[in-house]
Design a binder for these strands. Structure first.
Lengths: 224, 224
DNA sequence: ACAGAAATTTATCGCTTGTCAAAATACATA
DNA sequence: TATGTATTTTGACAAGCGATAAATTTCTGT
């Protein structure tokens, strides 16, 4: 907006405004995922970002546009984790590919629990936020994940469950990380502990690909 | 509060005040589960209940106490669905009992999706609401569910996953009903359709008890 | 150095929030 | 029918909300 006007490179690439924008986005992602849209105030976001009042409105135009910007940023972070997994596994055997994608998704949802939290929030009731999320980011992921599962279903050992149920089992497995606070109260352990993440990833992959092997005991990082 | 003062039965048992209380509780359960605690206002609850302003404060003392009353009411409804399942299955073979309890839980979470919604809400961050829910209602259920699973684990065909992961797989299966709005946008179908609920219950039970049979096709209501 | 735009700061608006307080009504017992 | 309490109604309060606008500072290109 300010750096690339045309014929000359005028800026060092990191204006002060960009720093403000990034700080606001980071705070917004955190607060929207922790508290939901309505319960998060613009003043709260600005305070957490460490910037002055009304800078969010200045840089993003309003709360709604700011929320969309946060979701786009968050989706970019998730895509950076998942797109390589889809690409790299393009040529491996479909059934094994499903295993691979499940493990990758579970680890990604542990690295970015904000995604699942916001989906649990917004998925409940209709409205402009859910429609916007579904059309822009959720539907493509749903299509890719169920397509991979259907590819694996044909003539292989995957359990014969409907793709829609498969999708909600996979994404539902993020509930453990989304509810990390409850998990700690119930079990006394940290949901984001590496062994715990591995246990969840391996368990989910084994359950959903019909592998009844001993599965767990954690620490075995599998081949990805 | 007004009916049983002492030596005489003065009321018909259904005072006008009790009707107000029930209307408020129903509206509170609906709005707390749809919007979360902070985003739900007392005026909104009273309007949906069809009662006058400030009656919630009068009957329950304040928003916090009202929320606890709603949670107690909701837990009572869930217990009415699940307690018989635990009781009836006390003597059947442990592995089969797990299957039975999973099916029952999935159907109950479809009948009361508010439970999962509120748990997804409150489980994310520490605070008085999460602590209160865990100590009063969640921990006993967690203990009962994981105990049943551990009983089934010993010497039987259940997949060897940690009980904590088992618990979050089971409760996470409620995500489909919790996010019914998203489900409809993605699949064009109704998550609460009887065949859909059966498919989810049977799929989850089969996955978590190592049964790789064809599982689904819905409509087969199983033996409960 | 200067002009103009970009970015930050300060002030204010109408509206909603949860809660307290008091007035008005309904109702069960004597 | 009278009395006292339970319940409903109305009014008001400080605090926080999202948004707009203007004043001020900082930065950039010439």
């Amino acid at each position: 907006m300010a750096a690339n006007l045309g014929h000359v490179a005028v800026n060092d690439g990191r204006g002060k405004a960009e720093k403000t924008r990034d700080a606001l986005l980071g705070a917004g992602i955190q607060l929207f995922s922790e508290q939901g849209y309505d319960a998060t105030s613009t003043r709260q976001v600005e305070a957490l970002a460490g910037v002055q009042r009304n800078l969010m409105t200045y840089h993003f135009g309003g709360k709604e546009e700011f929320w969309k910007a946060c979701m786009t940023e968050l989706n970019g972070q998730m895509a950076a984790l998942l797109a390589p997994a889809f690409d790299q596994s393009k040529d491996i055997e479909p059934g094994e590919r499903v295993r691979f994608l499940i493990r990758r998704y579970v680890r990604a949802s542990a690295a970015l629990p904000q995604i699942a939290r916001i989906m649990f929030d917004e998925g409940r009731s209709e409205g402009w936020r859910l429609e916007w999320l579904v059309e822009n980011y959720i539907r493509p992921f749903y299509a890719a994940m169920t397509q991979a599962f259907e590819d694996g279903l044909q003539g292989h050992s995957l359990p014969n469950i409907p793709p829609a149920n498969f999708y909600y089992f996979v994404t539902g497995s993020g509930a453990m990380f989304s509810m990390a606070a409850e998990f700690t109260l119930l079990t006394g352990r940290d949901a984001f502990d590496e062994a715990m993440v591995d246990a969840q990833a391996e368990s989910m992959a084994n359950l959903l690909t019909g592998n009844t092997a001993p599965a767990v005991a954690a620490g075995e990082p599998a081949n990805d």
